[in-house]
Design a protein around this nucleic acid. Structure first.
Length: 796
DNA sequence: GCGATAAAGGTTTTT
DNA sequence: CCTTTATCGC
């Protein structure tokens, strides 16, 4: 959370706060200005503590102050504190803030970092114990996919039908749950390629250890294995870490939880900070359950709720709180504030005809704000899905309105950067086959498939790295002279560069490598539009290497730090997804696209039922709570999805906002949109946003009426709670609900069995190929492979 | 090895 | 509908 934290807190806190402050006037400076709960969270050093920190309640402040407190009271030294975050950004911020407290030197805080960077640090010391060598490399997703593709093909499987991507997702799911190949449940193992799942997983791990590499999931898993198999080493770390802090605990997955549990055994000083209402990463393995179960898992835990919000106006908080109260699986917090903005605007809800009008209207509003002296930097547009960004970008370009997209493709994921990195990796780690493969023929050197195949075969047969195999092959006559010479040259180049590692600075060497390899030349000759930008990126890459001592140090950094500081230069509106907005705050937040199917997203509902809906609702909550002064929600009545124009229904979340804190905005533009009288029925039939005068607006189209009907039918289904019978009707409900709360997959075994033929109202007939609790993976005859909840299908 | 055309797929993202 | 990716033909 909180990359931008609230300014120093208002002095006018409650009486208790002031009394406490007065009583402890001798308290150190850093405790000054904390409210009682924050202070408790800082000062309760011993035993497990769960800090439930609502949005904008000063979470980061509590974490950093707590560390300062541990240090100041001499409870532990900097190297005895384990502080874990999810992102490098969060870790960086924490370091900066602590530095401010303790005056500069944070170098001692060796164990403040992301789960992954801390794991790497541990693994480098004990690599041999988990079958690696200390110099192991870390695969990024791209390397991983290429490796998986090789493995799938090597098994003679069709990599079109069973894509590396799909398998990577599956692997991820397993590793998130800390499952080794033999622990993968039979049903899931069988789900991929008719039972090849487990075999492929084994094969993949095998290849990784030959490559002396691991993927991101392994970093955690290897440490868990290390701890489990070497109690002495575990004990060593348990002794070392006198205090442990975990940020964003609601985002931890099972592996991270197990990791923490191991370290926390025999040392109860664990402080986890998080907000169950902001858990929005369930789909990538985060277990809200971890935070919901904390008191149970860590006996004697003190739970502290931070509910005083220092960010938003009371209207915004009221709207967000009422919305999130519709969730069942939550620990329950109610945010409050004393903060009053002079204007104290209601949360607004506006409608529009389509996404173009949405972009036009929001653009107009932003220009109006700008004219009134508001900085664009204080304005953000938060969307559910990235395709929504486009209409805003188009519009802002024509308006000449400055904007920046946050999130998008990352610097280190760009092709040219990866290529350059591959060159460096080959120099530093001669056994890095994936890197070698990547650049051996980039730029083109006439080393085609045929040559590479020979190299591969020798490498496989002798179990040696590709470069070594290539070297051996060059001594023979096996490769045609032309290719052989090209290969020889590449190898000689690497040999030479390796010899220069010690004599040249790593930045100089990097430049030489890119030059002599012909890589920069390749882009210079490329006349496509992107080429100049790519050359710039390469320059930027070299420049950023200056911050590191050596090439190896730089490579390590890059493999773990895939984020790039979004340079906050000019004044610009931020456009980003709701997910990447977590932790940020803006004066004005626009929330477009609040329509059924888009938000809540249809797929979340289909695949995870009620749990999915609740996660979407938390996402809405995150969105609204980003706003300090103004939250402006929009929905369009028509949206183009997959090219088809579809009329859309206002999101159910709109109906979950409290009327007294929301205003319905009449469209001032002539482009159509909302013309009706606002509130009508609530509860019962449809949305109150549906109640409009058919003659004053454009909602009288057949499409709209059909949608109305579908919505009403679906509401009826939802209220009866009888999802199953409703499905049998010819026209299925537009949205479907499952029955789960909190957990996305129930423990109870499904009543269905593998291979069974079933019918789904939307996808038709198909066969079950995997079962995880009540979540089925079905290979549909027409629709392909999908994950659905078992309550949505029937036997056939 | 490259360019053109066809096919497929289109939620959210960090390390 | 539009973008990205794969494959085919030269």
């Amino acid at each position: 959370m909180a990359s931008v934290e609230p300014a120093p807190q208002p002095a006018g806190g409650g009486i208790a706060a002031r009394a406490m402050a007065a009583r402890q006037s001798k308290a150190p400076d850093y405790l000054e200005g904390l409210n009682p709960e924050q202070r408790q969270a800082v000062e309760t050093l011993n035993g497990p503590v769960l800090v439930l920190a609502g949005a904008g309640t000063g979470k980061t402040r509590v974490l950093t102050t707590r560390i300062a407190h541990i240090l100041a009271t001499g409870s532990a030294g900097p190297a005895e504190i384990l502080a874990v975050t999810f992102t490098n950004k969060a870790a960086r911020e924490m370091k900066e803030r602590i530095a401010r407290f303790i005056g500069g030197n944070v170098e001692g805080m060796a164990w403040l970092g992301t789960f992954h960077s801390i794991c790497v640090k541990i693994l480098r010391r004990h690599a041999e114990l988990v079958g690696l060598k200390s110099g192991f490399s870390i695969l990024d997703t791209d390397d991983q996919l290429r490796l998986l593709k090789q493995i799938i093909q090597a098994e003679g499987l069709d990599d079109k039908r069973w894509t590396p991507k799909a398998f990577a997702a599956m692997l991820d799911g397993w590793k998130n749950r800390a499952l080794t190949p033999n622990e993968v449940p039979e049903g899931e193992a069988r789900a991929f390629a008719n039972g090849w799942g487990r075999k492929l997983y084994e094969e993949y791990q095998d290849r990784l250890s030959i490559l002396n590499a691991c993927d991101f999931g392994d970093l955690l898993l290897h440490v868990i294995t290390l701890f489990k198999t070497n109690p002495d080493i575990l004990a060593d770390y348990q002794r070392r870490f006198r205090y442990m802090l975990v940020d964003e605990y609601q985002d931890t997955n099972i592996a991270q939880y197990l990791w923490l549990r191991l370290l926390a055994q025999g040392n109860p000083n664990v402080c986890c900070v998080g907000d169950d209402d902001q858990s929005i990463y369930g789909w990538r393995g985060a277990e809200v359950d971890n935070i919901l179960r904390f008191e149970h898992d860590f006996r004697g835990a003190v739970v502290i709720r931070l509910e005083r919000n220092y960010r938003s106006t009371s209207h915004i908080l009221a709207a967000a709180s009422h919305l999130i109260s519709h969730n069942q699986g939550r620990l329950g917090k109610t945010l409050f504030t004393d903060f009053d903005d002079p204007e104290n605007e209601l949360v607004s809800v506006a409608s529009c005809w389509d996404s173009e009008e949405e972009a036009r209207s929001i653009g107009d509003e932003i220009e109006a704000l700008q004219a009134n002296g508001h900085a664009l930097n204080d304005i953000a547009i938060l969307v559910r899905a990235s395709f929504q960004m486009r209409s805003f970008e188009d519009r802002f370009v024509t308006l000449g309105l400055n904007y920046r997209v946050i999130g998008g493709p990352r610097f280190y994921e760009r092709m040219e950067i990866r290529d350059a990195m591959a060159y460096f990796r080959c120099v530093v780690q001669p056994a890095d086959d994936l890197a070698f493969e990547r650049i051996v023929n980039t730029p083109k050197r006439g080393l085609g498939e045929a040559t590479l195949k020979l190299v591969h075969e020798l490498a496989r047969a002798d179990r040696i790295p590709l470069m070594q195999a290539a070297n051996q092959l060059c001594q023979t006559e096996e490769i045609r002279p032309k290719a052989r010479n090209a290969l020889k040259e590449v190898l000689a180049n690497f040999e030479r560069w390796r010899g220069q590692v010690d004599s040249l600075s790593h930045t100089e060497l990097a430049e030489i490598i890119l030059d002599e390899s012909g890589y920069t030349e390749m882009w210079r000759l490329d006349r496509s539009a992107e080429a100049p930008g790519r050359l710039d990126n390469l320059k930027e890459l070299i420049r950023s290497m200056e911050d590191f001592e050596s090439m190896a140090g730089f490579l390590e950094h890059v493999s773990l730090v895939m984020d790039r500081d979004s340079v906050e230069g000019n004044d610009a509106v931020s456009i980003m997804t709701l997910h990447s907005a977590k932790g940020l705050e803006f004066d004005t937040v626009f929330l477009p696209g609040w329509e059924e199917g888009l938000f809540p997203h249809q797929r979340a509902l289909d695949e995870s039922g009620r749990a999915g809906l609740e996660e979407e609702r938390r996402l809405a909550y995150v969105g609204v709570t980003r706003a300090k002064k103004r939250a402006k929600i929009w929905f369009a009545s028509n949206r183009r999805i997959h090219g088809q124009w579809q009329s859309s229904i206002p999101s159910r979340f709109l109906d979950e906002l409290p009327e007294e804190h929301v205003e319905i905005v009449e469209q001032s533009s002539n482009y159509g949109g909302y013309g009706g009288g606002g509130y009508g029925r609530s509860g019962g039939g449809g949305s109150r946003f549906d109640n409009r005068d058919p003659f004053q607006n454009t909602y009288s189209t057949p499409g709209w009426q059909r949608a109305q009907k579908a919505r009403a039918a679906q509401d009826a289904v939802f209220e009866r709670g009888d999802f199953r019978s409703s499905r049998s009707k010819k026209q299925g409900p537009l949205t479907i609900e499952g029955e789960l709360v909190a957990k996305s997959v129930s423990e109870a075994p499904s009543e269905y069995s593998m291979g069974e033929r079933v019918f789904h109202i939307k996808f038709g007939y198909g066969a079950i190929i995997a079962i995880e609790g009540n979540k089925l993976t079905i290979d549909f005859e027409k629709a392909g492979q999908k994950k659905v909840l078992d309550s949505f299908v029937e036997r056939h």
